[in-house]
């Protein structure tokens, strides 16, 4: 069974234009990036998956359960969402309380909840800020708190809305590690991103949202190999991909390592 099934999904906000115009998707455990220009409806889509918004028509099944037939709170044990803006998510006055809030609500026993809270804080590198007030921390740290508060719930599905916002290289590496680790554990990570280099290096599958539809859906390499189509969606392909294209390489490069390795090999071949 698919972890998530989206069937003929239509959505518009009250008094708004139709934002999602018939989306059909199935998600297995492959880590998936959602990209698309500002206002394409990406955030709206993940809020629909989370059950915070309900389809105007069509259905969303999470582990076979229709989001229309279950409360958001009950669904929370299966699917976690890290909000685009951490300010929309954080409301407790200590980092520890904030992170353990979810595990308590979904009925994880106290010692287990404490353990997974501490583990999640170590995973995002905030183990030294356990007793700080989140309001006193920086934006990037608050984003990491909101990620930890979802990790601590150990949900099968993790939705991330622009996790790399305001993160330096250290933060991005850390998030990349988390996505890979979750994918390795057979858990589904779906993440919205604007950083194409990060998408290329991190995600197995990529979806492009445009004009209320999913216009591209394939493994990340295939998506970025269609440079023209990517540009038509007002997106810029990853920098290494562009570099490879400009140099006339036929291969689509997603990481600098791969690009360098191939270039060196080509140089050797040329010398001989």
């Amino acid at each position: 069974m698919n972890l998530i099934d989206v069937q003929n999904l239509h959505f518009s906000y009250p008094e708004g234009i139709e934002l999602l115009k018939g989306i059909d998707l199935a998600f297995d455990h492959r880590s998936t990036a959602i990209i698309g220009q500002n206002g394409a409806g990406k955030t709206t889509f993940v809020k629909l998956l989370k059950g915070l918004l309900k389809p105007v028509s069509g259905d969303i099944l999470i582990n076979g359960v229709n989001t229309k037939e279950i409360s958001v709170a009950k669904l929370a044990a299966h699917i976690g969402l890290v909000f685009q803006n951490p300010g929309d998510q954080i409301f407790k006055s200590s980092v520890y309380d904030e992170v353990i809030f979810g595990p308590h609500n979904i009925g994880i026993p106290e010692d287990e909840a404490d353990e997974s809270t501490k583990k999640a804080l170590i995973e995002v590198g905030l183990e030294n800020k356990v007793n700080d007030n989140p309001y006193d921390l920086s934006f990037s740290e608050r984003k990491l708190i909101s990620i930890a508060s979802i990790l601590a719930m150990n949900t099968q599905i993790v939705l991330l809305d622009e996790p790399t916002i305001a993160q330096d290289d250290y933060g991005k590496q850390l998030i990349q590690g988390l996505v890979r680790k979750l994918e390795g554990e057979g858990r589904l990570v779906i993440s919205i991103l604007h950083d194409m280099d990060f998408v290329a290096e991190t995600f197995t599958r990529t979806l492009v949202f445009q004009n209320g539809k999913v216009t591209m859906d394939n493994d990340t390499k295939s998506v970025f190999s269609q440079t023209e189509a990517v540009r038509r969606a007002y997106l810029e392909p990853p920098h290494v991909t562009q570099l490879g294209n400009r140099l006339g390489y036929t291969e689509t490069y997603l990481t600098a390592e791969q690009f360098v390795k191939d270039s060196l090999r080509k140089r050797e071949e040329f010398k001989q």
Partner: peptide, 16 residues
């Protein structure tokens, strides 16, 4: 509404 979304997102029952 924002905070209540944050709460029910993490399993606190607000509907019913």
């Amino acid at each position: 509404k924002t905070i209540s979304d944050a709460q029910r997102s993490r399993g606190m029952e607000t509907e019913g």
